[in-house]
Amino acid sequence: MVELFRNIINIVSAVAIPFFIVVFLGWGFFKKVKVYEVFIEGSKEGFGVAIKIIPYLVAMLFAIGIFRYSGAMDLLTAALSFITKPIGMPAEVLPLAILRPLSGSGSLGLMTELMKTHGPDSFIGVLASTMYGSSETTFYILAVYFGAVGIKNTRHALPAGLIADLFGMLGALFICRMFFGI
């Protein structure tokens, strides 16, 4: 059953993109859309959008860079460990939980390191990769998605996003403890 599910997922991930491209362009062709010209028409916008994101992403990432390399993460980890210890979160994965919404590449590196040190199938390894898969890089998405349309006042998007991250991490911890718990 698990094996079947995994096979399905493998196939889906391999063929999804060609499938989308064929269906979309094929449908267009079938509907007598001038596919090539229309494709170019839409494609043109790609460059502008990417350029528009730059200032938003620079502002966001450089602040995150300063925060990460100042040693403030260690202080935050130390402070939060008073809360996370009683709920059964291993101290090793706490930095990952903090870094996950801030930096995609940083949390990817941390997860890999945790799996190398403790083994990918250890409780910490499973928990770390579940945490990584349970959330997205909130700050990056915020900067890119809002940057693309020039949104400067993000209103309640950040607090809601961070609440989601928090519960994503707690959910990951809960389910991992239940199934692979110590």
Binding site: F20, G42, S43, E45, F47, A50
Partner: peptide, 17 residues
């Protein structure tokens, strides 16, 4: 990737998909 997918999306949009 932006240019690629915006192109595909435009076709889907015009075709009514």
């Amino acid at each position: 990737v932006m240019a690629l997918w915006l192109g595909v999306m435009k076709v889907a949009e015009v075709a009514g998909l």
